[in-house]
Nucleic acid binder design. Structure first.
Length: 906
DNA sequence: GAGCACTGC
């Protein structure tokens, strides 16, 4: 038989191929032995073999001995791995059989045996079958190759080779599917584990070439590309950092600043900012493209300050997230050697850490937007830098339009838009061909892998891939992007199940779920450093894409999906849909693996999918959200023609019209679309217009104290009640306590808040009532802010806790467009724009089904649901919103007075 | 009797 041995140079590997020959002979002998044994046994009838029965310990000892002995052989690992493998499998099979067979007897081809006999025979038979199968296959291809690692060039895919033989073991425990050696090799290569001594470590190269008991549904990846790392001398940097540590802290920081990739561009950048001023666009605009790690966020404001721009006003730098604004400000204040909050400060909601001295101000984009309300020309700023512009948050998009607008009469204003590479051209076009200034980043190369074929079940594929990485790739943590909490929990369970009982066979796998709703103390787990020899798998939602950075991630698994909110302006219905991500998002995810060293990204879709099916960029938020708040903000800034307003991407006209219509109905706008006095007051509150209307209206009903509590609770969303899987009944009972008297969800929320307040904001109380402390604290912050704003718009803080009707009337004043009527079948119909909806099962009124309800929001999940529902009297509608409802809309309420409870569903 | 991407003001 012709043998092909490719790319083999070491003598050990050469002898390896001979061993396979030798092994066949050995297997042949075993086969003969087996046959002999069966013959003998048949001759002896069903004689008892108990005297031959080995104890479990003896068996283990025997295996250990053979392992040890074979470690001295030239090709030891194959045999051992197989034995181990078969033994494990046999045990499993025996377990299954045990239930079916009586008297501890085992059948082998119709003959009753003891367990030990049975095991031995089966084991020999298995080897025989495997060898036979392999020989047949080898004959078929008329060549025989030594097994090689599956990803080696010219190698044989062992999994495929043995796919027929392995077929019958599908769905068995994953432990059988593991290849301990790839892991071993990885560990050896990095010389960090001593656990690797278990199997012959003399010849570590052989390990990779040996059998791979890889996972059944192993996924084939194609290495598509390697993103460029940047030409940056890391060693030199490390070197100089080392040196600079010796100096004083401030000196060291100054040294570090000079090592940032942006530093060489300092003069050029300042020149560009100074010079660019086109006649058709008075203010200077510069689009800055800089990858993460270039130092643009921390350095550019400092350069501008050093160049004297702060003499004319502050430098604002906006961030999409609060933590970013805070941490960057802290860093810059260190670098400048000033106290945080003095020359360098930050401004985020609930926290203004600035003073009169402040010249560099880091802030969230939403915060700058609110500052526009008080200072429509941003007179106190000389420079505005919109950072992370490529994220296209609702606030950045509006900021763009606004800064572009004010630039017309503020020629002295310098605008900097910093973005990732992908959209730079688009930003430049939007700002009338503003020049693009590129700064290299500090990235490591990332290898991108696509699957060969599309994966039908991405969750399963993600799990298999992460295990594959775990056993075949060098150390480094894995980050898996999943769509939501439920998926993460499922994945966690499956992973735990598949790795359970593996013991020392593979390195420890630490599974860390992370999503925004996860209690903070559990979130902390992902930041704990991975113990030596173990590997961390982080199962994350989109939160890991931008919001938080986990050190040590080397591998990213990207199934290509995320949950995205979409909004239907016609029905006013929101829904969260699992959607394919964009190319930009895929790149961002891949980049998460290359932060601390070269990384690898495994995409669970094909290169074709990537190029043809994914959008270039995620649809900007402004095109898929309720615009009522945006419109109110813009109107209060004096922008009237919203349809022709220069957005970078225009929001759907339908959404704009719907928002205008709503604001008109809430009497925030008059018939000519101008802001009314009510509208002006409403715009002060950083909440949705219906909520702000409710607050403004509470003045009339003397219950502003209660209403702002409700508004605060509603605005923190649906993360108040905590419902762990194992204690759902308790959690539901605790929740129903707040619904006594069927007061409705709004009042129930108020009860939750006041109860918490009465316990002096007790954390313990929250635990006892299955309430999320974090959400409550947030509600308290919101409430405090709303209380402060009440004063500003001169609404007295009045409490009227006993008068539930007053509270409900205030709610009606804001939410009258959200009105629904019970139908005969137990569902509801919205009154103004008729559509069928249901009460969300989490509502306290889900079983009660009042005839008329007002709801806070509509969500489309499995059905169209109303979330946060309260019973109302229909006549209030005509009283409170006569311009919106006429008597005929609600007439059957007056004519057919129903006894209480009539509307109850049967 | 069901489902909770992520931010931000």
């Amino acid at each position: 038989m012709e043998r092909q041995v490719k790319r083999r140079t070491s003598p050990a590997e050469d002898t390896g191929s001979e061993v396979s020959e030798e092994e066949r002979l050995k297997d042949q002998r075993e086969k003969e032995e087996l046959e002999q044994h069966l013959k003998e046994r048949d001759a002896a009838g069903t004689r008892k073999l108990t005297e031959h029965k080995l104890t479990r310990r003896e068996e283990e000892e025997a295996i250990r001995r053979s392992t040890a002995q074979e470690n001295d052989d030239i090709q030891p690992l194959r045999k051992v791995s197989r034995q181990e493998y078969l033994k494990k499998r046999e045990e499993k099979k025996l377990e299954e059989l045990r239930d079916d067979i009586e008297d501890e007897q085992y059948l082998f081809e119709g003959v009753k045996l003891t367990e030990a006999e049975y095991r031995e025979l089966r084991y020999k038979k298995e080897i025989y079958e495997l060898v036979k199968k392999r020989a047949e296959e080898a004959d078929n291809v008329n060549e025989y190759r030594m097994p090689e690692a599956y990803d080696q060039e010219g190698g044989v895919n062992q999994e495929k080779r043995f796919s027929v033989a392995m077929q019958r073991y599908r769905d068995t425990n994953a432990e059988e599917k593991m290849n301990p050696f790839a892991e071993q090799e990885a560990l050896e290569e990095h010389q960090i584990g001593k656990a690797t001594l278990k199997y012959g470590s003399k010849n570590k190269k052989q390990a990779a070439d040996d059998y791979q008991f890889v996972f059944e549904d192993q996924i084939d990846f194609i290495k598509a590309s390697v993103t460029d790392g940047d030409n940056f001398d890391y060693e030199e940097m490390e070197d100089s950092l080392e040196k600079s540590r010796a100096k004083s802290a401030l000196e060291a920081l100054k040294e570090e600043r000079k090592k940032l990739p942006i530093y060489p561009y300092r003069e050029e950048l300042l020149q560009a900012i100074r010079d660019h001023q086109a006649w058709f666009f008075p203010a200077s605009v510069l689009v800055i493209v800089g990858e993460t790690g270039s130092g643009k966020t921390t350095q550019i404001p400092q350069y501008l300050h050093e160049a004297g721009y702060t003499k004319r006003g502050m430098i604002a730098c906006t961030q999409p997230r609060r933590v970013a604004a805070m941490s960057v400000a802290a860093r810059v204040s260190q670098e400048m050697g000033v106290k945080l909050g003095h020359e360098v400060g930050y401004s985020i909601r609930f926290e203004d850490c600035t003073s009169e001295k402040t010249i560099l101000k880091y802030m969230t984009d939403g915060m700058l937007l609110r500052e526009f309300l008080g200072e429509p020309d941003l007179a106190s700023y000389s420079v505005v830098m919109v950072d992370e512009a490529h994220e296209r948050t609702l606030s950045t998009d509006i900021l763009f339009a606004l800064v572009k607008d004010i630039a017309r009469f503020r020629p002295d204003l310098k605008l900097l838009i910093s973005s990732a590479t992908l959209d730079a051209e688009k930003f430049s076009d939007y700002f009338d061909s503003a020049p693009i200034f590129k700064i290299p980043g500090r990235r490591y190369p990332v290898e991108i892998n696509f699957t060969k074929a599309p994966e039908a079940d991405y969750l399963d594929a993600a799990i298999v891939t992460s295990l594959q990485i775990h056993v075949t790739q060098p150390p480094g943590d894995v980050l898996v992007f999943l769509t939501g909490q439920e998926e993460i929990e499922t994945a966690e369970e499956i992973l735990k199940h598949r790795t359970r009982g593996l013991g020392t066979k593979i390195a420890e796998l630490i599974i860390c779920p992370i999503y925004a709703n996860l209690p903070t103390e559990l979130q902390a787990k992902i930041f704990e450093p991975t113990p030596e020899g173990a590997r961390k798998v982080v199962l994350a939602t989109n939160i890991a894409e931008t919001s938080l950075t986990i050190d040590g991630i080397k591998y990213v698994i990207d199934p290509g999906f995320c949950k995205m909110k979409s909004y239907n302006p016609r029905t006013g219905m929101e829904s969260l849909l699992v959607t394919p991500i964009s190319k930009a998002s895929a790149m961002q995810r891949a980049g998460r693996s290359g932060r601390t060293g070269p990384g690898k990204c495994f995409r669970l879709y094909t290169a074709y999918n990537f190029h043809n099916d994914l959008d270039d960029n995620t649809v900007p938020e402004i095109q898929r959200t309720n615009l009522a708040n945006v419109v109110l903000t813009l109107k209060s800034l004096g922008i009237h023609d919203l349809v022709h307003f220069n957005f970078m991407d225009n929001p759907p006209a339908e959404a704009l019209l719907q928002a205008l219509e709503l604001l008109f109905a809430l009497s925030a706008l008059n018939t000519s679309g101008e802001l009314t006095k009510v509208g002006r007051r409403m715009a002060e509150f950083p909440v949705d217009p219906m909520l702000s209307k409710m607050i403004v209206a509470s003045e009339k009903y003397k219950c502003s104290d209660e209403i702002i509590s409700i508004a605060a609770m509603l605005s923190v969303g649906n993360s108040i009640f905590y419902r762990p899987k194992d204690k759902q009944v308790h959690a539901d009972n605790a929740r129903m306590n707040f619904h006594t008297g069927n007061v409705g969800d709004h009042i129930a929320l108020l009860k939750v808040y006041t109860s918490w307040k009465e316990t002096n904001y007790s954390t313990q109380w929250c635990y006892e009532n299955y309430i999320q402390v974090r959400s409550m604290k947030r509600a308290r912050d919101v409430r405090d802010q709303l209380a402060g704003l009440l004063e500003r718009v001169e609404i007295e803080l009045t409490s009227n806790p006993g008068d539930l009707d007053a509270i409900k009337k205030s709610i009606t004043s804001g939410f009258f467009p959200h009105f629904a009527r019970l139908q005969k079948n137990g569902s509801y119909q919205t009154v103004k724009h008729p559509q069928t909806v249901n009460i969300h099962p989490s509502s306290g009124l889900a079983q009660v089904l009042p005839r008329w309800v007002v709801y806070h929001e509509l969500v489309l999940t499995t059905k169209e649901y109303m979330r946060q529902v309260t019973e109302l009297k229909p006549e209030w509608l005509v009283e409170i919103a006569p311009h919106y409802y006429q008597l005929k809309d609600v007439e059957d309420a007056g004519s057919k007075k129903m006894p209480r409870g009539e509307g109850r569903a049967q």
